[in-house]
Amino acid sequence: MSEGAPIVVLEGVSKGYGEGANRVEVLRDLDLEVHRGELLAVVGPSGVGKSTLLHLMGLLDRPDAGRIILGDRDVSTLDQEARARARNREIGFVFQYHYLLDELNAVDNVALPLRIAGRRTEAARGRARELLERVGLADRGHHFPDQLSGGEQQRVAVARALAMEPPLLLADEPTGNLDRNNAEKLFSLVGELHLLEGLTSVIVTHNEEMAGRCDRVFRLAPVGDESRDV
């Protein structure tokens, strides 16, 4: 199922790290389209560049060459300030690690993107409470990250990713640190929200079974091999 206009387009994107002899080419001349509304899985061996790809799509990093188009504009040329604004409004991130801020309780963590966008504190907290209710943590709002289980932390992270109602959700092995039961619960939650919120989602995963439940699987192969679309 790959219908709808593309929301993200990567054209001839290359990315490597390091200089001289230490230079590693991770992505070379990569083309990829993510269509509006699809749930795309990205799979591939460890170290192949899945996180790198996700970081590029999420404007967390810049490609060495090629263009990245988000919505209908070329975002590879934006300055730092504009990229930050685009991340705030258009992209929600979930990582393998929850990356919640220790100093803030669950409500304030979820409210962060709203506060960054300039919403008033109380309005942002109200919306954050709603979101926590959505992910089944209505009564844990005043708890701090270290008072939550791994699965709960990850669900707070999902709530935070969706706070600004971004059209695009990027998840990098969101279940990687969870046991089977929790992983299953989180994956179902993401799938559910994907449909409910009308999201476009890209999920990096090692789990073939989960990848199989997505609309499409993108297999990333090491530079030199060919990356295949299945």
């Binding site: 930050a84 604004r85 991340r87 409004r89 962060l112 993107p113 935070r160």
Partner: peptide, 16 residues
């Protein structure tokens, strides 16, 4: 460092 990267990821610009 990580928190700051997360904040930047959530859209906190360089000026902020």
């Amino acid at each position: 460092r990580t928190d700051l990267a997360v904040l930047a990821g959530l859209g906190l610009g360089p000026r902020a």
